[in-house]
Amino acid sequence: MSRQPKLSVHDLFKEYDGAPVLERVNIDVTEGAFCTIVGASGCGKSTFLRMLLSQEQPSRGEILLDGAPLPEEPTPDRGIVFQRYSVFPHLTVWQNLILAKEFEQAPLTGRLFGSARKKARDEIGDLLERIGLTPATDRYPAQLSGGMQQRLAIAQALVKRPKILLLDEPFGALDPGIRLDMHELLLGLWRELSMTIFMVTHDINEAFKLGTRLLVFDKVRHDPQAPEAYGATITYDLPVDKTARQKKELAETLLHDRPDSA
């Protein structure tokens, strides 16, 4: 492939206090890919995501974004939606959504006043409509359902138009019916905004349904005497198409039926 990958990871290692979590992770991701990441709990998939966000630094190896090393701290070019604590509880829905604009336009106070504030509020009208929160504009997050909160979180993460969107089990706490709605919303936004998405999930069906590429994190080496001796890496990297039923079954087997998986 001649095109430069959007994001490439070279020989990435991550250890905590000498205990390896990830080892030898290598991957190139093209622009516009929707990568879903699955794996047993504790296999380092969230750690991987946090490194893509620069929330944590790799122990060894490098991550390149458009050919340049990642900044050492989170920046607006990478948006994030966490499972919890993703929106600001002290701000109402519309205040959450104009916050990025306030940061941009008011370096000193971080606040917009008067007509500028009203203008910012008017500008998010379409976005509110899109995520179905128009009737809840003036409510605080604690007064919203879990699904509404996550819709707000996704919308908020997209305000800065990030090239990369990172999602850490964003729908993990939601009811199945609500999840389906969220899938539609997310897929629509992804197509519209041509983002590159990385999404950690523990739901294999969700991973297959949403992703164009499925990454399975697992340990390749095992020492029964010292289960912590080796880290995980990407063991399967599957392009997902709509006839991927067999691959799905394969992945399910790999994930759930391994005798010594903790």
Binding site: Q55, R78, I80, F82, Y85, P107, G110, P162
Partner: peptide, 23 residues
């Protein structure tokens, strides 16, 4: 304050000062 909120503010382009005053 959950670390997630601070990170989120950073991804929304906030400076240290803005994170202090607004979060």
């Amino acid at each position: 304050i959950p670390r997630e909120l601070v990170i989120k503010a950073e991804t929304l382009g906030a400076s240290s000062w803005q994170i202090t005053t607004r979060l």
